[in-house]
Nucleic acid binder design. Structure first.
Lengths: 252, 252
DNA sequence: CGATCGTTTGAGTTTGATCAAATGTGGTGG
DNA sequence: CCACCACATTTGATCAAACTCAAACGATCG
């Protein structure tokens, strides 16, 4: 299953996994499911039916406000798990939905429990991946709180491009990004109108073109610079050797 | 150590812990350390020297932007751990600092590793507590993104009061809250001036008085209502019985 | 008793929201 | 192939929330 290997590639950024554990993970996630665009994987208030690994397409976490406005609080790109954690929480405090047709591998709750019982190393890698997610969420607070519309959008584009690149889903300076302008608005806490104007500004500035579900970054250096983008928070540069030697050995 | 028991009380919201595990946690966290106001517990870029459990006082996670502005992205109240997770990440992508004098118990990295090796139930409780933290972070995105200054502040006050109440640190409708207006501004992504005006509005509206490091909530119902505050995301109502029976037994 | 820090007040500006309407665009069915 | 519909994008005009700058006032503390 080549596409589950995207998850594994990601987990191994943290630390190499033994063959056995990789195999176990692949075996456990053999059921594939397809979703349409704008379909919910899990709804607020619901119990989860297991963990899903995104193989293809784009999904998001979102919250809906009483007045109907929506805030997207995270994206899931291929190789991401959603939602590894809900099995510990009583009810979902938000929903997870697709943004385009999505293909996902299902990892039944029992399998997650078994895997995390048996393989502490794998568990730690999974835990690590949730920490990265959290770090991204924190950066989004900064983004929405302190950056202008222009910077904010630039920052989001930097993040998404970098994340897609790390799973091999970019070509040169472009990538598919199946979002509408109003979904961008729901992400950046802007109005759709303002997103439109800002996109045009970015085009005029020859930084970025976002059209036809394609994102083209004309000047990545400049884009990162106006965005104040520092990829550290994505933790994509490997964390190996963070654990003391004693802890690497045993753990069974 | 009565005050470490605040952490335990919190963890037992998730699921009761056997005496042995509680004892182990208490024993491991016997070293106490004191910090002054506005002192960093961990700085961005640093490696951690272990996990700290806040016993007394208030601390926060924060990020500093290139232009010097600061965004506080989380608060730690007594009974909270900071930072359980950093030992998995190479470097801190943010700092943790105190807001007033703080007393914290130190949990050395080796102890955390030992505890999590030996007690899967405890591990799950700790994991759960980090998930709650994450849920709070997501709600903050919504807060900063979609609510007006007035609602935003009301929401923050609801959250802090509820969290302090859950660890027994409120009296009736009031609690200590050692924050300045400009720290509130750094939290809510507002200017200090606007925070001031908004606080005065809230006083005039007879909802909340925040003066002299004390928060007094005059009308909690009304406050929650204007804030659109739904405490679900704090997961304070217990999650027991979320795990399948098979998983409750074993786990060794 | 200055000095420092926090709070309060005023005036003017900016960003981004809202409302409304026009223009594209892709898909469907006749 | 065209007419039509739904949906997304673009443009304009107006408005409100929150910011900035500047200054005064008030505490608290060595």
């Amino acid at each position: 299953m080549i596409r589950v290997s995207r998850l594994i590639r990601k987990l191994e950024i943290f630390a190499p996994l033994p063959e056995e554990e990789k195999r176990a993970l692949i075996d456990a996630s053999s059921t594939i499911r397809r979703y349409g665009a704008h379909e919910d994987l899990i709804q607020e208030g619901a119990l989860t039916d297991g963990v899903k690994i995104i193989l293809d397409g784009l999904a998001c976490r979102y919250k809906v406000l009483p007045d109907g406005r929506r805030q997207i609080v995270a994206y899931f790109v291929p190789g991401d798990m959603c939602d590894l954690r809900v099995f510990l929480l009583k009810r979902m405090d938000h929903s997870i939905g697709t943004l385009c047709p999505v293909e996902a591998a299902l990892l039944p709750q029992e399998s997650v429990l078994e895997l995390t019982e048996r393989y502490p190393r794998l568990t730690r890698a999974l835990w690590w991946s949730t920490l990265v997610e959290e770090a991204i969420t924190r950066e989004w607070i900064v983004n929405v709180g302190h950056r202008t519309a222009f910077e904010r959008m630039a920052h989001l584009f930097c993040e998404i491009f970098t994340r897609l690149q790390s799973v091999g889903l970019t070509q040169d300076n472009r990538c598919d990004l199946p979002l509408t302008q109003s979904e961008l608005a729901d992400t950046l806490a802007l109005s759709a109108v303002h997103v439109n104007r800002t996109l045009m500004d970015m085009r005029r500035a020859r930084l970025v073109t976002f059209q036809g579900k394609q994102l083209i970054i004309h000047d990545r250096q400049a884009l990162q610079s106006v965005a104040g983008f520092d990829p550290n928070y994505l933790h994509l540069d490997g964390e190996t050797n963070r654990l003391p030697a004693a802890f690497k050995r045993n753990t069974a």
